[in-house]
Design a protein around this nucleic acid. Structure first.
Lengths: 344, 344
DNA sequence: CTGAAAGCGCTTACAG
DNA sequence: CTGAAAGCGCTTACAG
């Protein structure tokens, strides 16, 4: 009659319970569960073990297993903002891949890191994850140093790190070229670009793609027009106004990011610029919302889910000191909607 | 020269290392770290311990601590979809509250649950979390039964469970009344509603709020017009068309959810119905995107972050068998933008 | 083919 | 005021 006595049928089943029911040693149960191939065991003994596991609904205690093996079975994923649908896709891909490997994803925002004294990094540093995925740009250099010092495997996602030794990115250059080529094919010659912040690695590569496509088209540098802003609607709003007020009068705009495009479309509407009649707009990232914007937005679809999945796979497959440099290229395609048309 | 010898300065610091450096027993280190108030200790001994912890950058191993105490310091959060910005807000609030309590949030989607044979529930059932928050509606009854059977504390968020014993919700009824009152104050009398799916608890309460506000206004039942759909843009698109094609000719529509409103605005644009000139629209949930829709959407702001935070607090504060029935009411306010105006 | 034993890194009642 | 010991639930090299 101890006060904390467990209810009969309670789920606090341990490997000992399973072993007793099967009439074997706990070590045998462990080896059966973990598919130890060095284990020679009679078929009916194995069956008794399996039956006992099932009958008791036994699941190994994660803490005990982790303590013994130093493997957690969890991966940390840092993003700047849960509200950004680009990251939603990456998370979904990461979760799917982790789940297939029997792993769990622990997602956290940089925002939280700044907010509490005992930071997320401390929580993770206590051995709660096997490694971390760093998606997005606001991680401080000191924090990267701490991952190194703590021997914590990490991988930059959709962004290259300072020394460029551990990252997986998308083919941003090609995405920009696909978008600009679409505008060129429609007959546009004067094509402006709204790009991301100068610090963002993706912004730089999309800019290179824009320049390469324009160069191939034979347009001179004088027809180039670029504005840049943070990857936010308000940034896109301001950048669009900058372009609209220039003397260049482009007939099309390539927008390097979905959030920027949301702001750009709003700015166009405010100024009475009709899209696509007065100006064509194409943006990078095909999110569900694209179809519901005004007008429905032509986009380049990027493999965001695949990026998230690949990131998990790479992190799990490589040692802590290995170089990881990978680019996810497929699938990428143009999704034509109503924001692009031939120039008038 | 063992092959796995740790690098000098490596972070695999244990409580033993700290104890040796401070010249005390490991148990003393433990008690200092955990602020054991039954501990009488000389000030300078304590200082030696604290100094050693800092010097070695010691962080207790989470697995060992969990194994010993049966406390994980992690909470699971299930949502239907990362792309839904309503859940982004809830997640942000939950993370902030958990972080303050030194806890971690493990976020997962129902989608993943269905996809792999070793489900998320199994992963969590192995003792990876202290409890789970169930936000959104697609959890199967059998899964709820498993939480009960596994003695896993759970809490429904933004939705009441079958027996209504463990939940925290928003004041959906009042949100609907605030929205409808705004329309009434503008002079509208024929006000339609686009509601959520019949299975959704929030949908039912917003509908009650709509009916209550209309009744107070003195309008008879004949002026009521309702359509309902899943909480998605495509649902809102279809429901809007249904209302537009009815003979009732309302001058305003109350839309019960942000995603529905996105589709409703698109449908209006397709039909050439001008908002707010021909029809006013107000929706529940004030998300960043509202300002960038066409036209900028008038909304009722709901305390989503507060809901996420409260959910974490309630789950941590209550026992597994306690009743938890709570409503987060503040802050709630009308955010007027461009989609509502007086009827013409 | 299967079992006994050690140990992962903590915490906590108990001893002194 | 501080230390010694047991034990949480596993896994794995070793023994037989």
């Amino acid at each position: 009659m101890t006060p904390r006595q467990k209810t009969i049928g309670s789920k606090r089943v341990t490997i000992i319970d399973v072993a007793q029911r099967a009439g074997v040693d706990p070590s045998v149960v462990s080896r059966v569960i973990n598919n130890d191939d060095r284990l020679r065991i009679k078929a009916d003994t194995r069956e008794r073990v399996v039956a006992a596991v099932r009958a008791l609904d036994y699941r190994p205690n994660a803490a005990a297993r982790t303590l013994r093996t130093s493997k957690v079975g969890a991966i940390g994923l840092f993003i700047p903002d849960f509200a950004n649908p680009v990251y939603s896709e990456i998370i979904a891909g990461a979760e799917a891949a982790a789940s297939l490997a029997g792993c769990v994803v622990v997602t956290g925002t940089d925002e939280v890191v700044g907010r509490s004294e005992q930071t997320y990094l401390d929580l993770l540093g206590s051995g709660r994850v096997d490694g971390v995925l760093l998606a997005g740009g606001s991680l401080k250099k000191s924090e990267q140093a701490r991952f190194e010092a703590a021997a914590m495997p990490y991988l930059f996602v959709n962004r290259r790190d300072r020394d460029g030794s551990r990252y997986v990115v998308l083919d941003d250059n090609r995405a920009a070229q696909v978008a600009v080529r679409h505008l060129l094919d429609l007959g546009h010659r004067s094509i402006a670009m709204i790009g991301g912040p100068s610090g963002a690695d993706t912004a730089r590569r999309r800019r290179q793609g824009y320049l390469a496509a324009m160069k191939k088209s034979g347009e001179g540098a004088e027809s180039l027009l670029m504005a840049s802003a943070d990857y936010t609607p308000s940034g896109g709003f301001a950048a669009f106004n900058e372009i609209a007020e220039s003397s260049a009068r482009p007939t099309a705009v390539f927008v390097a990011n979905f959030a920027l495009a949301i702001g750009a479309l709003k700015a166009a509407e405010r100024r009475g610029i009709r899209i696509p009649e007065d100006l064509s707009v194409v943006a990078v990232h095909d999110l569900a919302l694209a179809e519901y914007l005004y007008p429905a937005l032509t986009t380049v679809q990027m493999p965001l889910r695949e990026l998230g999945a690949r990131a998990v796979e790479l992190l799990m497959a490589h040692g802590r000191t290995d170089q990881i440099q990978d680019t996810v290229r497929e699938p990428m395609r143009l999704v034509e909607r109503e924001s692009t048309a031939a120039p008038r």
